[in-house]
């Protein structure tokens, strides 16, 4: 069991580093004008932590762990809905000029 769990950890670590590298390249490709929406989106998706909260809130009955889980679900939901909606609001404001574009630069 112990050997197995260290393997799981190494897999997790592999995933972690690869994800960091992907994140590095993807985020550098984000246009600076959209850095605020980027924060909105990352804020919303970091609330994927709700997965852990649901697992804790999952079992029937009521104990400490379940209450913590439910609080976690509420907090993460505020973020998920709030984060995506506020990003949606921001992005829907970034409009293209409808008239002919003036010469740039």
């Amino acid at each position: 069991m112990e050997a197995h769990s260290s393997e799981v950890f190494v897999i997790g670590l592999t995933v972690f580093f690869l994800a960091c590298i992907i994140g590095y390249y993807v985020v550098w490709s984000v246009t600076p004008a959209l850095h605020s929406p980027l924060m909105g989106v990352t804020n919303a998706i970091s609330s994927v932590i709700i997965v852990g909260a649901i697992l804790a809130a999952g079992p029937q009955g009521f104990d400490t762990s379940k209450i913590f889980g439910l609080i976690g679900v509420v907090l993460a939901s505020v973020n998920i809905f709030g984060g995506f909606l506020v990003t949606y609001r921001m992005l829907s404001m970034f409009k293209k000029k409808t008239k002919k574009t003036k010469e740039k630069k």
Binding site: A19, T42, S46
Partner: peptide, 15 residues
């Protein structure tokens, strides 16, 4: 040991 959380967390952290 949840890869989804690890990946997402790393993306947000990097960002």
């Amino acid at each position: 040991s949840n890869n989804l959380l690890i990946i997402t967390g790393a993306l947000v952290g990097a960002s």
